[in-house]
């Protein structure tokens, strides 16, 4: 198990190194000089040079890469060209919204998908299964911005249970924060839950056809016991894969929902800084998202090994 963990960890570090190089290179080759963008087309060459020096754009690329990576490792993400504030602070504020929102949505998705998937698989081909499958079809097809607006109409405007948008801030207490994230989390979770339900169901159905499930029945386990004791854990591998992918998406891919609910999340920050050509923010946020995705994959790999002993033993 230790060997497996070390291997995965080494691959994590390597992936990060490669990702940072690629991100840096891509942003370097992108056309547009931030300094000239900030000063407009009529800027004096001297002012431009001065700003470039101030922004650290005049040093060689290798040095800039090393400064950037070294800074990130020590928590210094640089200063935003446009806002003139440290990027680390800006990003930290956004993560305080995006990470809880992603986790909230993922937990909701799992809480819906697991029971629904197990229910459908154990009633394959019967009305219960067909009902769940129909519902997931609908859930996958639903545009989430439309669904988000419906949620606002019903629960915020009609029933007044939740705020219609904006983020109260964690300093107002956990409950206030969660209340303002509830509607966006539901809007995000439902399509994900629909996908996860289908994955859960088909993974379980595959396992139900396995020989060892018949062996378990021959031991005297009831159909339900067989499903819970022998089926579920074997069905987890594909489900974990999808959960990992969904978390990555929920963490950084939620710009539309952030827009609908006026949430100051990471997605909006990326969008704003790209439009403003605030390269240092883009670089840092993209690197951060990549780090999060790679970290999630690492955790999913570890979860595989916990679930399946075949991955633990050296091969």
């Amino acid at each position: 198990m230790l060997r497996y963990m070390l291997k995965r960890l080494a691959s994590l570090v390597l992936s990060l190194a490669v990702a940072s190089l690629i991100i840096f290179a891509l942003i370097e080759v992108a056309p547009g000089d931030p300094a000239s963008f900030m000063l407009g087309i009529n800027a004096q060459p001297e002012t431009l040079a001065a700003l470039r020096a101030e922004l650290g754009l005049d040093v060689p690329k290798v040095q800039r890469y090393l400064t950037w990576v070294g800074g990130m490792l020590t928590g210094d993400f640089g200063t935003s060209y446009t806002y003139r504030t440290p990027v680390a602070e800006m990003v930290a504020d956004r993560i305080a919204v995006s990470l809880p929102l992603a986790l909230y949505a993922l937990i909701l998705s799992i809480l819906i998908a697991f029971p629904a998937g197990i229910f459908a698989a154990s009633r394959r081909g019967r009305p219960g299964d067909l009902g769940v499958m129909g519902a997931t079809q609908f859930g996958v097809a639903l545009p989430n911005f439309w669904f988000a607006m419906m949620l606002v109409l019903v629960f915020a405007i009609q029933l007044r249970w939740f705020p219609a948008g904006g983020f109260a801030g964690w300093d107002k207490g956990l409950l206030a924060g969660l209340t303002s994230l509830t509607l966006p989390a539901i809007a995000l979770a439902l399509p994900q839950a629909a996908i996860l339900t289908r994955v859960m169901r088909s993974a379980l159905l595959d396992v139900l056809g396995e020989d060892f499930m018949r062996t378990a029945r021959a031991k005297g386990l009831s159909a339900r016991q067989t499903l819970w004791r022998h089926g579920l854990r074997n069905a987890m591998i594909p489900v974990l894969t999808i959960i990992g992918l969904q978390f990555s998406f929920l963490f950084a891919g939620t710009i539309i929902i952030e827009q609908v609910f006026y949430l100051p999340g990471l997605g909006r920050l990326i969008f704003q800084s790209i439009s403003a050509r605030d390269l240092i923010v883009v670089e840092s946020v993209v690197m951060l998202v990549v780090f999060a995705v790679i970290l999630i994959n690492f955790l999913v790999d570890l979860a595989y090994a916990v679930v399946d002993p075949r991955l633990r033993s050296p091969k």
């Binding site: 396995e210 020989d211 060892f212 062996t215 021959a218 005297g220 074997n234």
Partner: peptide
């Protein structure tokens, strides 16, 4: 079915053809 569950494994045991797949790989 309830009584059958009590019977299987207790009064009747069964061995299957494919030993490679007849055991749960994660237990």
């Amino acid at each position: 079915e309830r009584d059958l569950c009590a019977l299987r494994g207790n009064d009747i045991g069964m061995i299957f053809q494919e030993p490679m797949t007849a055991l749960n790989p994660v237990h």
